[in-house]
Design a protein around this nucleic acid. Structure first.
Ligand SMILES: [Zn+2]
Ligand SMILES: [Zn+2]
Ligand SMILES: [Zn+2]
Ligand SMILES: [Zn+2]
Lengths: 148, 148
DNA sequence: TCAAAACTGCTATAATATAACACTCCCAAA
DNA sequence: TTTGGGAGTGTTATATTATAGCAGTTTTGA
């Protein structure tokens, strides 16, 4: 995400926080900017390292708390297979997250489908399983890494 | 998985190993049995603890190596959102794994679809992304935990 | 019979994540 | 304008998950 877009995102999030009565604090702003500025999913300790360039010797909970906050409010996703975090690129709420993850360059492309694919939905119905959230992580090679 | 089924699985895996020229060693057999006997996905250190009832003071690599072996050969899956491992219930090879995971009882039901759902496949095509593997983890409540 | 490959056991350490507690900041009710 | 409570932070310590590296053992087959 380029600087301009990061700026916009910060504004959107700040507005959201104000509206919802939550605080858009310094550590939160920094973490948001760091994750947004990264061109690929970024791990908590890498976030923490970057945070160290902006705050005085921050500790893991500082990063993790901000991450948790943004995950809960739908501004970030955790990518389980990478132990890494990424900005949500859907401007609307969605019930699950789905990513195409390039194993060469490490970039993750969010597909943000609105609903669970029909095949999977059929299985949950058949099992009497009630879905509260879901994620799909598709590994492979992105276009850029296929045609170098 | 009941004792009878565990026994069968061990035989299947042993036969596979023999056929493929790999060794079905003691630690591997124990780890397979432990994971198979668990009624839900089990973490590496829980496997290790159980292993301690059968071997003399086993160390993490002993568990992890066996897990890795079975993952590579399609007999186990890792469930990323739980950091836990489970026996594959598909008797055929599949390109991805999909689970319905009950957040109440912790059980995981494998759906083993053979192919990436169409919606997701369409997105990968549109992106020029070549898939090498994928997984879906669907959280919610299982039938038993809905009607207690 | 002996060399290569597969596998194990072990030590150490890396990488990721959270519990717990005292303190600060902010808003809103008295 | 105080003051009290909830949200948030900073810090220490520790839990949890996972891997690197190396010496030694087992198996296989030339
Ligand atoms: Zn999203
Ligand atoms: Zn790529
Ligand atoms: Zn499977
Ligand atoms: Zn359940």
């Amino acid at each position: 995400m380029n600087k301009q877009d990061v700026k916009k995102l910060v504004q959107v999030v700040e507005a959201y926080c104000t509206k919802e009565g939550m605080r858009f604090t310094d550590p939160r702003r920094h973490v948001l900017e760091i994750v947004a500025a990264s061109d690929k999913p970024i791990g908590a300790y890498d976030i923490l390292a970057r945070l160290g360039e902006r705050l005085d010797n921050p500790k893991p909970p500082t990063a993790y708390r901000a991450i948790e906050f943004f995950e809960q409010h739908g501004f970030m996703h955790r990518i389980e297979s990478l132990n890494a975090y990424v900005i949500c690129y859907a401007d609307h709420r969605h019930e699950g997250s789905q990513f195409m993850i390039c194993d060469v360059c490490g970039k993750a492309i969010e597909t943000h489908l609105c609903h669970l694919p029909a095949d999977l939905m059929a299985r949950t119905r058949a099992e009497g399983f009630v879905v509260s959230g879901w994620s799909a992580e598709i590994h492979g090679r992105c276009r850029d890494c296929l045609n170098p």
